Simulated assay, not measured.
Amino acid sequence: MSPLLEVSGLTKHFTARTNWFGRPISHVSAVDDVGFSLQPGETLSIVGESGCGKSTTGRLVLRLTDPTAGSIRYNGRDITCLEGGALRDLRREMQLVFQDPYASLNPRMTVGDTLAEPLALHGLVPPGKRRARVEELLALVGLRPSHARRYPHEFSGGQRQRIGIARALAVEPNLIVCDEAVSALDVSVQAQVLNLLKDLQARLGIAMIFIAHDLAVVRQISQRVAVMYLGRIVEIGPTAALFAAPRHPYTRALLSAIPVPQPRAKRQRMILSGDVPSPIDPPSGCRFHTRCPFAIDLCRSRIPAMETAAAGHDVACHRWHELPAAEPLPVESAAAGAERLARLQTRFVTQVPNVE
């Protein structure tokens, strides 16, 4: 099967300072030589610390931001230089779910108007049938037809995010970029939205790029994971393989910080020293060498190439094959998880009185 999306050498530099003549003299390396592919119906998660370039990568893929260099191929066609009507037609096939479900909705438009707008913009549904299509979209994300007459401020955060998902689905896209779509929601609401996304993907066959910093969420929803650090992808591979045997030291540090539902489990934390370097002046060689406990002189002088560690599992590290095996994450059995959840629910019911 040919990839739906192929990204190669993707780079984006933002101007940080200019001279008296308006010429740039320094820039921010937001994304630097990023490459990956995405199959139809697949979910690829991009994880990393704040400021590593995750959201910028998503916006570059959607052509909301123009790249400095590199190529983006969608269904075999290079979309890097598309403009005007051709770029507008592409918007129908690639959509975005924003992080903040309230700021991304127009407070002066009803939900019905918000969902009908892309239908009118792309001429997908005749005016007489748009109301029925809006009701169909609301039902698709678990909302009632009567909600079409309400405004965004009349909904909860989870409901607003469902509206954002419905808006993205309105034009029947092949690819959706979810830019930290559940990070602003409560944990219980996160689970509902994640289950909704997985169900819609299974039913509609949509490919997703899921941008997040919560590795527990990533583990639940994605088939593959790409780990970014300071604008570069340092490791990419199948979710199960990456969580079971992380190769890059940065990936190991991220996984060691995941809390597990076993209070008595003994784990060896990998705590990184120092702060993330400035993207205006990134370190030479491997960008992680300033915080890596395994760094050697080679790491400080040469940029590591992406190497294949296993089938479909690539890593950019000079010493990945020399590092000791990573400690596996403690996994809670299904029976133990159900018992713990039932115990918590019983405790909550007995301690919280009914309020009528």
Rank of each mutant, 00 (worst) to 15 (best):
A338N: 04
A335E: 11
A336C: 04
L341I: 14
S333D: 07
V352K: 11
V355R: 04
A326V: 08
P330L: 10
P330R: 07
E332V: 13
L323H: 00
P324Q: 08
V331T: 10
R340H: 03
Q351S: 13
T350Y: 09
T350A: 15
A325T: 12
R340E: 15
P328V: 12
A334L: 11
F348E: 08
V352G: 01
Q351T: 08
A334P: 01
R319H: 13
F348W: 07
T350F: 13
E339P: 01
G337Y: 00
A325W: 00
G337Q: 10
E322D: 13
L344N: 05
A326Y: 04
R347E: 12
Q351H: 13
A326N: 05
R340L: 11
V355M: 12
P330V: 06
E327I: 09
F348D: 02
P353M: 12
T346P: 00
Q351M: 10
E332N: 06
L341H: 09
A342H: 13
L329H: 09
R340V: 00
H321N: 04
P324Y: 03
V355T: 06
Q345A: 14
R347P: 01
H318C: 10
H318K: 02
P324S: 08
Q351A: 12
W320L: 01
A342N: 10
L341K: 14
L323Q: 00
E332L: 15
L344P: 00
A336S: 11
A338T: 02
E339F: 01
H321M: 09
A335Y: 07
V349I: 11
A335F: 05
E327G: 00
P328E: 12
T350W: 14
A334C: 03
H321F: 01
G337R: 14
P324H: 00
P330E: 10
A334G: 00
R343S: 08
P324L: 10
R340F: 02
V355C: 03
T346W: 05
G337S: 10
T350V: 15
V352N: 09
N354S: 10
P328C: 12
E327R: 04
W320S: 02
A336H: 05
T346A: 11
